[in-house]
C-alpha cells in the first residue's frame, strides 16, 4: 500500500516536472528565436545603410557559424558568435559616411579614425543592451590578428577569444570574395582565395581555424562551396 502510494506520488511529481519543463521550453524557445530575429533585423538595417547589395552581415554570420561548428563551439558560444558576426561593423554607423564609404585605401589619421569602429561598436552596444553579454567584446576584437599586429588591442594568438578569431577569418574570406575598389590584388576565384587564406595561416589567421575551414571544404559563402 505504502509502495503504491509512493509510486503514485512519484508519477505525479514526474508529470509535474515534465509539465514545467515543456512549459519553460515553450516560453524560452520563442525568446531565443525573437532574439535571433531582432539581431538579424538590426544587421539588415546596418547592411542597408552601409550600401551592401546583398545580405552581407548574414552571409558572414552563417560562414562564421559553419566554421564555429567545425571548431566544436558550444551552442551558447555559437549564439554569441552569430550575433557578433552580424553586428560586427555596427560601429561604422557612428563614423562620417564619406570616411567609411571612401573608395580609396585610407592612411594616417583617417585610417586611425576608421579603426575606432571596433571600439565604438563595443561601447555603444554595451551601453544600450546589457543582455548581449560578451558580444560587444567580440565586436571589439574582430580585427585582431593571430600574430598580434591587428587592432585595437594587438591581442595575439589565444588571447583573442575563439569567436572573435572566427569572425576575423569569415570577414576576411567574405572581403576577398567581394570586390573592393582600393584593393591592389583581386582574387580571381575560389582557388585564389583558398591559397591566400592558407598563405596567411599563422600570420593573420589562427592555423587551427584555417585547418577547420579546409576540413569543411573551404566555403567562401554561406551554404556554398
Amino acid at each position: 500500500m505504502i509502495i503504491t502510494l509512493f509510486n503514485a506520488l512519484l508519477i505525479v511529481l514526474i508529470t509535474w516536472l515534465a509539465y514545467l519543463y515543456f512549459d519553460l521550453r515553450e516560453k524560452a524557445m520563442p525568446a531565443h528565436e525573437r532574439y535571433s530575429k531582432l539581431i538579424r533585423g538590426v544587421a539588415s538595417i546596418v547592411d542597408c545603410i552601409e550600401g551592401y547589395d546583398k545580405k552581407h552581415s548574414r552571409e558572414i554570420a552563417e560562414l562564421a557559424e559553419r566554421i564555429g561548428m567545425a571548431s566544436g563551439l558550444q551552442p551558447e558560444q555559437l549564439q554569441s558568435l552569430s550575433a557578433a558576426a552580424m553586428l560586427h561593423d555596427i560601429g561604422e554607423l557612428l563614423l562620417p559616411r564619406d570616411l567609411v564609404k571612401s573608395g580609396k585605401k585610407l592612411e594616417g589619421d583617417d585610417l586611425e579614425l576608421l579603426r575606432t569602429h571596433t571600439l565604438l561598436g563595443e561601447l555603444h552596444l554595451k551601453a544600450q543592451i546589457e543582455e548581449l553579454d560578451e558580444v560587444p567584446s567580440l565586436i571589439r576584437w574582430h580585427h585582431e590578428r593571430w600574430d598580434g599586429l591587428g587592432y585595437p588591442d594587438n591581442l595575439k594568438g589565444e588571447e583573442i577569444p575563439v569567436a572573435a578569431r572566427i569572425i576575423a577569418l569569415a570577414d576576411a574570406i567574405s572581403a576577398m570574395n567581394a570586390r573592393r575598389d582600393y584593393r591592389k590584388r583581386q582574387y580571381s576565384g575560389h582557388e585564389d582565395i583558398i591559397a591566400e587564406v592558407k598563405r596567411l595561416s599563422g600570420m593573420q589567421f589562427d592555423p587551427q581555424l584555417v585547418k577547420n575551414w579546409v576540413s569543411i571544404g573551404c566555403p567562401v559563402e554561406s551554404g556554398k562551396k
Binding site: K198, R199, K211
Partner: peptide, 8 residues
C-alpha cells in the same frame, strides 16, 4: 602545433 603546412 596545428600540423598545418606553411604555404608561404
Amino acid at each position: 602545433v596545428c600540423e598545418m603546412p606553411v604555404e608561404c
